[in-house]
Amino acid sequence: MDALDCADPSLLVDKRSETTTSLQALAMLNNRFILRMAEHVAVALKGKDDPVGELIARSLGRPVRREERALLEDYASSHGMAALVRLVFNMSEFSYVD
């Protein structure tokens, strides 16, 4: 609760503040929950025809683009699917809705 800006009930605001701090970035990158969930998603995608495509579709709600597919698949082949899922969880596109 220290890291993510847990809403302060003593503040009266019209709109909750929305900034990312470096502490939040660290939490999103390294927190146990994120890393465990990334593993679970990787396991769920195992054996699928197009794991990267499905990962992007499920996380970002759109088809994977050609150029990014190459980058993501390259990363996954070097470091594994769980590490890739962690990366996707940290994409701005994952956190923000257009």
Binding site: L26, A27, L35, E39
Partner: peptide, 15 residues
């Protein structure tokens, strides 16, 4: 020393 400075140690997949 800073929370989450390093990845959770149990995630061995993250080199």
């Amino acid at each position: 020393p800073i929370t989450h400075l390093f990845p959770y140690k149990g995630a061995k997949y993250l080199t």
